[in-house]
Amino acid sequence: MKRVHYGIYDDEEILLSAVKQLKSKNWNIKEVYTPFPVHGLEHALGYKHTRLSTASFIYGLTGLSLGMLMTWYMLIQDWPINIGGKPNFTFADNFTSFIPVLFELTIFCAAHGMVLSFLIVCGLFPGAKESNPIPETTSHLFAIELDDNNANAEEVNQILLSTKAIEVKTLERD
């Protein structure tokens, strides 16, 4: 069990300036819980930009390549079909009419691959237990979780209140 301190705020602008103040005083912010995306928060916390969009691009390329492999194998290599006497014995001849399918497969893999990665990196799955200690942070409040840096509880609460927290809470957490 470990003691954790929470500063609770009711406005995202106050929260953002609180984060900046705490950061400048070298306090260790463990986590910030917000009910909606707060612009600039990620930057203020010094997080690196997520690489999910790059991942999505790679998933898309994978989908495109697999689609090309599939259409080539099925309609050129394994069982070529003569449709209306149109040339069909090379991939290049048939490529134009494969474009819709290749396009859809690219989007399919890019979208689903990225969403699955998102769920995995955020640890989201059906049945996962939520970890926000203050339930109102999914509705209208904002909370900063602070490590006490070996300072005493009183000092941590004072610094949180000085950043215009409406309330401070100390909870025992694993």
Binding site: Y33, P37, E42, Y47, L52, F125, A128, E130, S131
Partner: peptide, 25 residues
């Protein structure tokens, strides 16, 4: 709703990822 919400907690990093996913989607 716990099962439906997949254990979402509203962490700052998760929101940043959420916004990125929404935009790319």
């Amino acid at each position: 709703y716990r099962a439906l919400s997949f254990g979402w907690s509203g962490k700052a990093k998760d929101w940043a990822r959420f916004e990125e996913v929404s935009l790319v989607l």
